[in-house]
């Protein structure tokens, strides 16, 4: 009797152990399928065209780096990387700087103008970029001849990015106590000093969230830079990847190496800032 019961308990235990195990197996299998395209990029980046056509799934024997060095030169990688870096970094910093100040103004100087402008910014988040792109090119291109210029692109990112950032900063700033600022003002700080010495440091979590959101958006953006940047030397990384692909359509090894080079910076950013990226994207979605 006792034996039987003991056996039954073991069975029960096994059953309980096997379910989570199956679940885990299923999840890892799914993940493998999810990441399979990236795996294909990696293995084929080391092969030549003939090896890829004869078998895109096979692994290579002699690992060659020729594709990478060729892709580096042919897609003008450093130029693209540098342009992307400058545009992304400057835009993100400027957006954080000006949007936080604006949100502060809207909150501390409440009046008809603040209310109206804030409403306008929130409402403008309804406008898809496609509804603006044609007049934008018309105004900045044919009228002012300002296109094909990194700085004007940064200017545009500041314009397009400020609404969301002002909105998010505004929401977070409501929770900051006014008393702290009053104390600073009484002690003789000017408004600007009060803002930068007291308020801005308190906004740190929001700033990180917005920086992450804006970095991913601007770094990966294609449509706006494709309209604004025309000459080869101004291209950002997504643009040079795209045009590179158009030029070497069937040189697969070279293309895969180029794609891998484009992916690496974003993955590095993700690994460094993993927690911030996921929570940032979450807050950006719920806002």
């Amino acid at each position: 009797m006792k034996d039987l019961r003991w056996q039954f308990e073991i069975k029960e235990k096994k059953r309980k152990n096997i379910l989570p195990f199956l679940r885990q197996l299923l999840l890892y299998l799914l993940l493998a399928i999810y990441l399979f395209p990236f795996y294909l990029v990696v293995i084929n980046a080391f092969k030549d065209r003939r090896a890829i056509i004869s078998n895109p799934l096979g692994l290579v024997r002699p690992v060659k780096l020729t594709n990478f060095s060729a892709a580096f030169i042919k897609m003008n990688y450093w130029q693209g990387f540098w342009n992307s870096l400058v545009i992304t970094a400057l835009s993100v910093v400027l957006i954080a700087f000006f949007s936080s100040m604006t949100a502060y103004y809207f909150l501390r100087y409440q009046g008809r103008i603040s209310k109206f402008l804030f409403f306008l910014m929130v409402a403008s988040m309804l406008i898809p970029f496609q509804a603006i792109m044609i007049p934008l090119v018309r105004i900045y291109g044919s009228t002012f001849k300002l296109l094909d210029n990194k700085w004007i692109l940064i200017y545009m990112y500041l314009g397009f990015g400020s609404s969301l950032s002002v909105f998010v900063y505004h929401g977070f700033m409501k929770s900051i106590a006014v008393e702290l600022e009053e104390a600073a003002l009484v002690d003789g700080c000017t408004r600007i000093q009060t803002f930068f010495k007291i308020v801005f440091p308190l906004l740190r979590p929001t700033t990180i969230t917005l920086v992450v959101l804006n970095v991913l958006w601007i770094w990966n953006d294609f449509l706006l830079p494709s309209l604004v940047l025309i000459s080869k030397t101004n291209r950002t990384l997504p643009l040079s990847t795209f045009y590179f692909h158009g030029t070497y359509t069937s040189d697969y090894g070279l293309l895969m190496a180029g794609l891998l080079l484009t992916i690496i910076p974003v993955i590095a950013f993700f690994i460094l800032m993993q927690k911030h990226v996921i929570s940032g994207m979450l807050q950006g979605a719920i806002k």
């Binding site: 502060y104 403008s124 500041l158 397009f160 408004r191």
Partner: peptide, 14 residues
């Protein structure tokens, strides 16, 4: 100082 730059850019771009 606080809202001027953003307002200007926002109006000219959006």
């Amino acid at each position: 100082i606080f809202a001027g730059p953003t307002t200007f850019v926002f109006f000219t771009v959006v």
